[in-house]
Amino acid sequence: MIKARVTVTLKNGVLDPQGKAIEGALGALGFDGIGHVRQGKVFDLQLETADKAKAEAELKAMCEKLLANTVIENYSISLA
């Protein structure tokens, strides 16, 4: 079994109103010098295979088909 983590983030240049709001809230809490806050998503998955190459190929397909909207988002895959 392989454990994997997929991280999905907004592409550069895509406006992130939630990131902006979080940045403002951090400033209001007294955290100075914070900039460029971007919000993303993390998916933890388990795959019933021992084949890392196969797992990576499958995870890539999952990202392309569902987990990320590649119009606005990038993704990265890491295997435990």
Binding site: L15, P17, N69, V71, I72
Partner: peptide, 17 residues
Amino acid sequence: LVEAGLLPGALMRNASL
């Protein structure tokens, strides 16, 4: 329709949240 790729672009959270 945009998620299905039938239309261009994407729809994101309202700027006002």
